[in-house]
């Protein structure tokens, strides 16, 4: 099939690209369509998370005292470390896209690996945090059996905490999955300055995961 279309030139008279899909006129159109699709998905992600943020604001408005005291049970330092880890992974992700733009395969692979390592560090810190909460009975809903007195409805705070950070964590895990896929393709040599839209799109997704955390960190950890 590819040999049959190899001679086929696109509208700009360029030779057929290996990754050019037939239903797109040009590689540029293919790239901008793919990116537009990812942005639509990210728009949906914003709305999806907004429901959880809304729950946070409503419960916080109803039980301000609970929020003040329950948030003190979270480790600002661990949250801070994870914030820096995610910010650094966003930097390496952006640099990975830049390397792909420059057809720098070594830089691309290197930056992708750094991003993946950061994602694992994030999950490891999260694991330590979750274990501590489990140990102290700081659990959502009916499972809550914390010993320290927290006024109001502490189980609501931890419901919101586990739901929001849990869903964010699932996004991180999904991110690791697509990052590995991109890494495999990068090692295979699929990407160069003429074709790197998958790297860019995975990057956009990864930055959104970072964006969500940028708001989760102050809201959950830095109430006071």
């Amino acid at each position: 099939m590819s040999s049959a279309t190899n001679a086929h030139d696109d509208a700009h008279g360029q030779a057929h690209h290996k990754f050019h899909q037939h239903h797109f006129l040009t590689m540029a159109q293919q790239a901008s369509s793919a990116k537009f699709g990812v942005w639509l998905f990210l728009g949906q992600e914003v709305l999806f998370f907004s429901g959880l943020f809304m729950a946070y604001f409503v419960f916080r408005a109803l039980y301000p005292e609970t929020w003040l005291h329950a948030a003190e049970q979270l480790s600002k330092t661990m949250g801070g470390i994870n914030t820096v880890v995610l910010l650094y992974s966003s930097l390496t992700m952006a640099l990975a896209v830049r390397s792909a733009q420059l057809s720098d395969k070594k830089g691309l692979v290197n930056n992708l690996i750094q991003t993946i390592v950061c994602a694992f560090i994030f999950l490891a810190v999260k694991y330590v945090e979750y274990s501590a909460k489990f140990e102290h009975g700081l659990l959502p809903g009916a499972a809550y059996h914390g010993h320290e007195f927290i006024p109001g409805r502490p189980e609501l705070f931890f419901t919101v905490y586990f739901t929001m950070t849990g869903l964010h964590g699932i996004h991180v895990i999904a991110g690791i999955g697509v990052l590995f896929w991109i890494l495999k393709r990068a090692i295979r040599g699929d990407f160069d300055s003429t074709y790197y839209i998958p790297v860019e799109n995975v990057g956009l997704y990864w930055h959104l995961v970072d964006l969500v955390w940028i708001f989760l960190f102050p809201l959950l950890y830095l109430v006071r």
């Binding site: 990116k35 942005w39 728009g43 949906q44 914003v46 709305l47 907004s50 943020f53 809304m54 604001f57």
Partner: peptide, 17 residues
């Protein structure tokens, strides 16, 4: 167009809030 997609979803979120 990508800026518009993000802006519209953020506006919808603020309206919702």
């Amino acid at each position: 167009i990508n800026v518009i997609v993000l802006a519209v979803s953020v506006l919808a979120m603020l309206l919702f809030f």
